[in-house]
């Protein structure tokens, strides 16, 4: 199936979980990433139980702490 991850179209396995996608995408500090699918937040405890569907649009939002 086809999904969009951070603006990039990808072909991925059917029924891919958010948890697996986070691994496949080599997300830095995966425990602290915020994930949205089709403009809705995925609760941080629900990465394992959330499976992606064809056409889903996924974004990763990262903590960025610096500024001084």
């Amino acid at each position: 199936m086809k999904i969009t991850v951070a603006g990039v179209n990808k072909e991925v396995a059917d029924n891919l979980t958010v948890a697996q996608l986070v691994i496949d995408e080599k997300v830095e500090t995966p425990e602290y990433v915020t994930v949205t699918i089709n403009d809705e937040f995925v609760e941080s405890g629900a990465f394992e139980s959330t499976t992606l569907k064809d056409g889903d649009v996924v974004e990763f939002l990262y903590f960025m702490g610096g500024g001084q």
Partner: peptide, 21 residues
């Protein structure tokens, strides 16, 4: 806080001088 629920634990996410900018 809608986007980031809670601060990450100390040193879990690079924030500072060792990370550079």
């Amino acid at each position: 806080r809608c986007v980031f629920r809670n601060p990450p634990p100390k040193d879990a996410v690079p924030t500072c001088k060792q990370a550079g900018v």
